[in-house]
């Protein structure tokens, strides 16, 4: 058994309106020096075997939309 963690974010080229709003809220709270805030999704699952390619396939097919999103996979025993 392995744990797969997938982090999905909007592509850098796509404006993240939610991220911008939250960044502005942090500025309003007085947190200066905060920039490039991006909001994404986090998926965690238990998978049989440490098969990176299989998880990548899941990401391409369902977990992420390659037109608008990038994904990053962390796999650990």
């Amino acid at each position: 058994m392995a744990t797969a963690r997938v982090i999905i974010t909007l592509k850098k080229t796509i404006m993240d309106a939610q991220g911008q709003t939250v960044e502005k809220a942090l500025h309003n709270l007085g947190y200066t020096g905060v920039s490039n805030l991006r909001i994404g999704k986090y998926v965690e699952m238990t998978v049989e075997g440490r098969d990176q390619e299989r998880v990548e396939e899941m990401c391409r097919k369902l977990l992420a939309n390659p037109i608008i999103e990038d994904f990053r996979i962390e796999l650990e025993e």
């Binding site: 909007l10 796509i14 404006m15 309106a17 939610q18 709003t21 939309n65 037109i67 608008i68």
Partner: peptide, 16 residues
């Protein structure tokens, strides 16, 4: 769009 029958994708409304 998700099915690939049409080109493109949807994002959340810019105004949230």
């Amino acid at each position: 769009l998700e099915a690939g029958l049409l080109p493109g994708a949807m994002l959340r409304n810019a105004g949230q």
